[in-house]
């Protein structure tokens, strides 16, 4: 499951000199990196370092101030890019789950793909059941979000994103709002996804997940990528003083 050494595998996202400012606050400062198909990359770093902002720039939930983000070779920062079509390619999972409170589980899964004509209602339902079965929640298809535990909600949020057949899955601290006993069930689903070859970018505080599941880890601090290395190397031989002190605090 570790690093994929095959360099022929195509690059799916390339970020060049990405900068993001909120008013005068420089949150991302000249970030350049790239992600390959099937790669699983963790993003770690101190609070306020810009991890969420980085992730949100990738699906244009934030508009980059300058720089370029190539997805499948197209710069999505250019004018004229269909933002909604781009977002269909990028599944997003939130810390707070954000399941639609006014819909039951099956509706949560099928509403967007059916509305966006990705599939018919029957196809969506069939796909929904298949995916729910895979995360062990087939029996919850008629439940409403308030009837579910945090871990169940997050597994369903992952399924909801998968319904769109995304090319990349973005996770923003998917286990941070969970009670400890529910973290495992969500990480298991993510681990399976990684094993199936999904391209994943995961902002996380779960250092074990970063080390064991992701092939590469980025350390983002103060808007800079301080280190960007294969995960084992980053955790076993941290170089920058900031990373060393960060790891001392969290491990």
């Amino acid at each position: 499951m570790a690093a994929n050494p095959d360099s022929n595998i195509s690059e799916i996202i390339r970020v060049e000199h990405l900068t993001k400012k909120f008013e005068n606050l420089l949150v991302l400062d000249d970030i350049s990196t790239s992600f390959r198909t099937h790669e699983v990359v963790s993003v770690i770093g101190p609070s306020g370092g810009g991890k969420s902002t980085f992730l949100r720039c990738l699906n244009l939930m934030e508009t980059p101030t300058s720089g370029a983000i190539y997805v499948d070779g197209v710069d999505i920062c250019k004018k004229g890019v269909d933002i909604n079509r781009h977002r269909e390619k990028m599944g997003m999972v939130f810390q707070q789950f954000n399941l639609f409170n006014n819909m039951n589980v099956m509706k949560n899964l099928t509403a967007a793909p059916v509305k966006l004509k990705k599939m018919t209602a029957e196809e969506a339902e069939t796909k929904g059941i298949t995916l729910l079965r895979r995360v062990g929640l087939e029996d919850k298809r008629n439940s409403y979000p308030y009837e579910l535990s945090g871990g169940q909600k997050q597994r369903i949020a992952i399924v909801r994103a998968l319904m769109m057949n995304p090319e990349v899955m973005l996770f923003d601290e998917p286990t941070s709002a969970l009670d400890p006993e529910m973290i495992g069930e969500v990480l298991d689903v993510m681990r399976e996804l990684a094993e199936e070859g999904m391209t994943m970018i995961v902002v996380t505080h779960e250092m074990r997940f970063a080390r064991e599941v992701s092939s590469r880890t980025l350390f983002l601090s103060d808007g800079h990528i301080e280190e960007d290395k294969p995960s084992h190397e980053l955790f076993d031989h941290p170089e920058s003083p900031r990373l060393i002190s960060f790891l001392q605090k969290v491990l």
Binding site: F94, L99, F100, A112
Partner: peptide, 27 residues
């Protein structure tokens, strides 16, 4: 209504109007 609801709708590729009518207004 929790802004996360609209955010999730937009992240799935729904437009602002679709997010409004399908998710936010019913709540």
């Amino acid at each position: 209504v929790d802004p996360g609801q609209m955010e999730a709708a937009r992240c799935l590729g729904l437009s602002g109007g679709q997010g409004m009518t399908m998710v936010v207004l019913p709540q």
